[in-house]
Amino acid sequence: MNAMVGETYFRRLVVFYIPLFLFVFAMLFPFAWMLITSIKPDAELYNPRISPFIVREPTLEHWESLFGTTLFIRWAVNTLWVAIASTAVSLFAGVLAGYALSRLVFRGSTMFGIMIFVTYLVPPTLLFIPLTGVVTWMGLQDTTWSLIFTYPTFLVPFCTWLLMGYFQTIPKELEECARIDGATRLQAMSKIVLPLAVPGILSAGIFAFTLSWNEFLYALVFIHSPETKTIPVGVTSELIKGDVFFWGALMAGALFGSVPVAIVYSFFVEHYVSGMTGAVKG
């Protein structure tokens, strides 16, 4: 009996706890490394003979230089503004289109549905070169507006696709009741369906927010002035000068660029996950 229990515990350790620990360790190690690097003085960072795992004299000099001598705060404000604005634009367009595609019968609706799905899978890397032409032609280059208008290219199809699925879970009868009581279609949509769809809209919004916070290619190509950049582009282009890497400040930038999105995520884990899994399942 005792041997049995011992054996199953051992087995559980080998097939469960150890693999799980290794996975979690591997997933989190780079973040620990950002933190450790950002609080280590240069003398320790660039000494290959001492253990890199131990911080002997922790310092905040890299954090200070990140916030004091770079435009990091400016980039954070830009990123936040772009993420909120492009998410709002995408939710607006996505809610309306998702409602139309899931509820209304009109010519071409199937085709529009397929079109949304196809554009959902068009990666930014396919279009960034001609899109640069479009952005320049509209006079938006080097402004945050160029990002607010182009991020919806990948956010709108995603939001529409996700919300289509969500709207379909809301019983049609609710709307029909409201319509019998004299509500117009628009009123039935805004007063009955949308309030019930808030969890779905929140999921789409959270996911869209993190996607725009993380976007890199468009921001890299459309924006050139240091004070207009977003965090991902600012940190990678302004904190690396030629071949000189200021690793302490760089890792501080990577850490503080990741923290806001991690905080948003931690508040809305459930919504984020249902947005992510809903987005692929449709």
Partner: peptide, 24 residues
């Protein structure tokens, strides 16, 4: 909480975590 933390590499900005890898 384990499920939530395991997703971290996917949600933070890719270029920033990749910078950490560049350093590693």
């Amino acid at each position: 909480i384990t499920r939530a933390t395991v997703l971290l590499p996917f949600i933070v900005p890719t270029v920033l975590s990749t910078l950490a890898w560049l350093w590693m």
